[in-house]
Amino acid sequence: MSLFPFALTYTGWVALCLSLSRHAREILQREPSPLERHLLRAAGWLALTASLLLTAARTGWPLGTVEWFGMLTATAVSFVLLLSFYPRLAAGLGLGLPVCAAVVSLV
């Protein structure tokens, strides 16, 4: 299991969450435009799909899919917990985590 696809699932959740107006208002303090919402939703699904492809490429489809579901659950639960106490930090980590993961993997 590698860190980068793991972090990507977190980013995917953040983007999908921001595409919902109630959460976007809470985090961004403004209503996102319809275009922004579409882009965020697309970005979210893209991140989740990319994570699945990367995981499957690494460990094969059967185990990769199982790993991916496990990562999805882990990041979703931690994101929701963070979101209800520190919403801006929770959203910010959506960008921070993949960058950190990429750096750690390269080093």
Partner: peptide, 12 residues
Amino acid sequence: SSSPLRWLFALS
């Protein structure tokens, strides 16, 4: 065999 995956299962 992978223990990170086992921990993900345990978390679930």
